[in-house]
Design a protein around this nucleic acid. Structure first.
Length: 486
RNA sequence: GCCGCCGUAGCUCAGUUGGCAGAGCAGCGGACUUUUAAUCCGAGGGUCGCAGGUUCGAAUCCUGCCGGCGGCACCA
């Protein structure tokens, strides 16, 4: 590549030349530290009341990336950006001397810079630091994205997220919000008596969700492991163990397609509480989301405040399609009812999949306001407890916001014999070719035999929650490094 | 996996009917003491995603491949 002089090489060579001339002048282009830096945002708010042209004697030390430069000669203005904001610097030859001026103005856009300067409000009403001294903190050897249009190419933004973060303030702000969402979740649950736990990511057997796993190999043990698709089964074993209120916040991995709401690795919150049912969990879920929304200053269109709408799944299907799945309770009658209304009937799929089809196609897209869709068919829910009053259903809900599922919860099945039968049903489904059927987990059933209290549990998709709170329509926008093809 | 759209300079984008590859920013050389996307002068910078094909001639038309986006399928 060195033997081809294209535009990029020219740009790189220019920066390399500057690097070498700095070293030749005895300047270390990669110094070790720069102590005592104030965030730019703090400096800005300290001078919020200054009037145009007003001088101060307040000295500030700030550091960041050089983002823009206006003017040369005897005076120039520079923009410095850190995580908290942007501030204008004024470089004057009468302050810095001719050599210092040349060195400061000769820096490249993208260089990391630390300065000491005095605050004043410019004639144009811009808070500015008059540079008294400065230090190059790290030389940038590659050109930054364009200063005005920024970086818009989505592929580059996701593959080279660092450039997105350099160029686009909205990207920086979004991931700060995401971080605050996660701390707020922890603060909420910690405040309600939950303890955070960590269960295996590498699992000898996967379970807790209907999904295909990633597999990997442990060399020393010479055996296959699975990356977890859920934390559910281990967390319920902790409830058996008496931890009473537990949560885990971390990555799950599902070996499935990628689209605007699915990334193969994603952040899941699961929490379980003893002596609770799915109504208790629903109430805690809506309070949690409202708390987090308030903590991050959510101001979106959708009203997230409790109580959320509640609708049973059979009612929801009946209202949208006129089909009563409680009446059409076998495959043939349901298929017939669907055909009678001109709906496509997937071939070779059983009754549960047909119900799932009705929900996905006709109910989910209508659930824009926060909604708990309650009471699912038992066949779709191998870990949920039977409904206390309606045969054939379980006590389960999924929470929807903006037409997107963000949570799934149930009154947990704690009857070990019933759980065994559910696993047997899953085994039958697997035998019939269902690649997402639950593998039989004897260790989990034995844990239930030890005695698990009545328990409510939930999984909340954190990436999707962040999408709701930030108004983004693609999960790739809220995941720092989303999965991409090579 | 299928369908559609897209891929041009470091970045943001033009490119007409198939006829010499363009602009702004950035970079380079120069001028400039109050700028706010600074301005002005000058000279540069290209595997038009990749590989074939059609044609006197392809960024442009055709085929295949790679990558991205959207939709379908899949995915509680």
């Amino acid at each position: 590549m060195a033997d081809r002089a294209d535009g990029a090489d020219d740009l790189l060579e220019a920066r390399r030349r500057k690097l070498e001339s700095l070293r030749a002048a005895g300047i270390e282009p990669f110094p070790h530290d720069f102590d005592g830096v104030e965030p730019i945002g703090v400096v800005r708010s300290a001078h919020a009341g200054l009037s145009t042209g007003e001088e101060t004697s307040d000295r500030h030390r700030v550091a960041g990336r050089l983002a823009a430069r206006r003017g040369q000669g005897k005076m120039a203005f520079l923009d410095l950006v850190d995580r908290s904001g942007r501030i204008q610097l004024q470089a004057r030859v009468d302050e810095l001397g001719p050599e210092g001026m040349d060195r400061l103005v000769g820096l490249d856009l993208g260089d990391l810079l630390g300065i000491d300067g005095v605050a004043f409000m410019s004639r144009r009403g811009e808070l500015t630091l008059r540079v008294e001294s400065f230090a190059l903190l790290a030389k940038s050897l590659r050109p930054p994205p364009e200063k005005h249009h920024g970086l818009t190419d989505v592929e580059t933004r996701f593959r080279r997220r660092e450039l997105d973060l350099i160029a686009n303030e909205e990207a920086r702000e979004l991931f700060v919000v995401r971080a605050r969402v996660i701390t707020a979740v922890r603060r909420f649950l910690d405040g309600e008596g939950f303890i955070e736990v960590e269960t295996p990511v590498l699992q000898p057997l996967y379970g807790g969700a209907a999904a295909r796993p990633f597999t990997t190999h442990h060399n020393a043990l010479n055996r296959e492991f699975f990356l977890r698709i859920a934390t559910e089964l281990y967390l319920k074993r902790l409830i058996v163990g008496g931890l009473e209120r537990v949560y885990e916040l971390g990555k799950d991995f599902r070996n499935e397609g990628v689209d605007s709401t699915h990334n193969p690795e994603f952040t899941m919150l699961e929490f379980y509480e003893a002596y609770a049912d799915y109504e208790d969990v629903a109430a805690r879920c809506e309070r949690l989301v409202a708390f987090v929304a308030s903590e991050v200053g959510y101001e979106g269109e959708v009203d997230l405040s409790p109580p959320w709408r509640r609708e049973t799944l059979p009612d929801a299907i009946r209202a949208r399609t006129g089909i009563d799945i409680m009446e059409a309770s076998d495959r043939e009658s349901l298929a017939q009812a669907m055909r009678a209304r001109g709906l496509a009937v997937p071939e070779d799929e059983g009754w549960p999949k047909l119900v799932d089809e009705l929900v996905t196609k006709h109910v989910e897209p209508t659930l824009v306001e926060p909604t708990f869709l309650m009471d699912y068919p038992v066949a779709l829910s191998p870990f949920a407890k039977r409904h206390r009053s309606v045969p054939g259903l379980v006590e389960r809900f999924e929470a929807y916001v903006g037409g997107m599922e963000i949570a799934n919860a149930f009154t947990e099945l704690n009857d070990p014999d019933e759980q065994r039968r559910r696993f047997e049903e899953q085994r039958a489904l697997a035998g019939a070719g269902d690649v997402e059927a639950q593998p039989y987990d004897e260790a989990f059933v034995e844990a239930l035999e030890q005695g698990m209290p009545p328990t409510g549990g939930i999984g909340i998709g954190i990436d999707r929650l962040v999408m709701v709170l930030t108004g983004r329509r693609s999960i790739r926008e809220v995941v720092l490094f989303p999965a991409m093809r090579d």
